[in-house]
Design a protein around this nucleic acid. Structure first.
Lengths: 233, 233
DNA sequence: CATAATATTATGTGCATACATAATAAGAGT
DNA sequence: ACTCTTATTATGTATGCACATAATATTATG
């Protein structure tokens, strides 16, 4: 080794990151090329490439052919979270999980839902509403529409036994999706269902998933007040 | 090529993904080993490895040495979002950006803040409060504490000129951080400051960042009602 | 001087090979 | 059966090399 220690890509990654953190290479700075770094660290260019690729993936550096690699000016910061199945989430808190199916009916959706699922206004979809409990306390209110044309098999599933959430995650893959979070006030109906007072602030997430060009499902989850969603940076 | 078309890692990635999506390899299934796939696709094992590594990174497959690669069963779904600097976010909507500095004072923080920043209760920190406007409408209320022991330079910065948000992002790297989202009701003070009525539901994000073992800053942003945070899946 | 054609260059990728490592399976010994 | 030891194996990674590709720099051309 031309310069200390091991030369795994993780190690090279670590060293480069250190140079960025301690401002040896400040934001915007052009850092040495792969060949030079390989010489410096006494490893192959492939290894440096791997390290830099990972740094680029997490947004620490920007890379461009011919132009080289420079430290990102960090205009944006990426946050990430793993959204587990509701049951897992409840059980991870050490609470007992139970869910109650409020509705399970194939019917004509509202115009807004039809548009979201990209189906004709005259077509039908499966509407599911349920409440998920943690230790018998309402935890999440679920309002879901499933495109039965995309997932015809869903009609044979006993959704009182296995929650739609869980069944879909385990049986239906998707190719793309969107996830939106917002804060909403409880209305009278929801407050009643979850045992809350009216106008409490609750966190709402809406997820829509697609299998190639066909919509799979769109679901809105309303979390009980005080719920925190954690992300990593 | 032993089997059609090109053999870039993206191509192999695509093919394997297709086999997973069309349930040729259903969830939980053990998929062929790298060597076998390499033969099947007529490419080097390195290339298959790269493709599978990417699929593992996005949670589509689980890999274990000796055990092999299997299609992920409980797909805890990963969501990602890029959180831009507030000014960029406002300007991206085509709105004019302005911010107002309400407070900029070094003082003793509350016990909760001191704990978050991991400083002694007797120590001081820089407290900043400001409102960010989009086209003269209050968009975000910012409440920030900065660990001046970690970032002493901040004391020389004119934070009425450049927002703390922007200055920190451009000048201070961090090694780890946490990002928490929740829904809150507006209290009287906040409602007044943002021109809202009391008890409206607003989205709140709290971000705390660290430089190695030292805290950098903790900031709570309160978004105006109706704000939606979008994520990719 | 502006613009188009061409050369240069840093990153991006594919491949063959070798060896490392973690997880599992098989076997030895009790 | 049980535990401990020893193979076996699929993934993980490092390396050298060759060539591809996108950006940029340079030169040619009107």
């Amino acid at each position: 080794m031309a310069n200390g220690r091991a030369h795994t890509w993780q190690d090279i990654h670590e060293r480069i990151k250190r140079n960025i953190i301690n401002l040896t290479w400040p934001p915007g700075e052009l850092i040495p090329g792969e060949v030079e770094l390989a010489q410096e660290y006494g490893c192959a260019r492939t290894t440096v490439n791997r390290a830099l690729r990972e740094l680029a993936a997490t947004g620490v550096v920007d890379r461009k052919r011919k132009a080289g690699t420079r430290v990102a000016k960090q205009k944006t910061r990426q946050v990430r979270a793993e959204i587990p199945v509701i049951r897992t989430q409840v059980e991870a808190q050490g609470a007992a999980y139970r869910f109650q199916l409020l509705e399970n009916k194939i019917k004509q959706p509202s115009k807004a839902i039809a548009k979201t699922l990209n189906i004709k206004a005259s077509e039908v979809a499966l509407h599911i509403r349920s409440i998920h409990y943690a230790d018998e306390l309402p935890f999440i209110y679920e309002d879901r529409w499933i495109n039965v044309k995309t997932i015809p098999k869903i009609k044979q599933v006993d959704l009182a036994q296995t929650s739609a959430n869980e069944w879909l995650v385990q049986h239906v893959p998707f190719t793309s999706g969107e996830f939106v979070i917002q804060a909403q006030n409880t209305n009278k109906k929801l407050a009643m269902a979850l045992g809350l007072s009216v106008d409490e602030a609750i966190l709402t997430s809406t997820r829509t998933t697609w299998l190639e060009s066909k919509s799979v499902t769109t679901v809105t989850l309303k979390y009980s007040p005080g719920y925190q969603m954690h992300f990593e940076i």
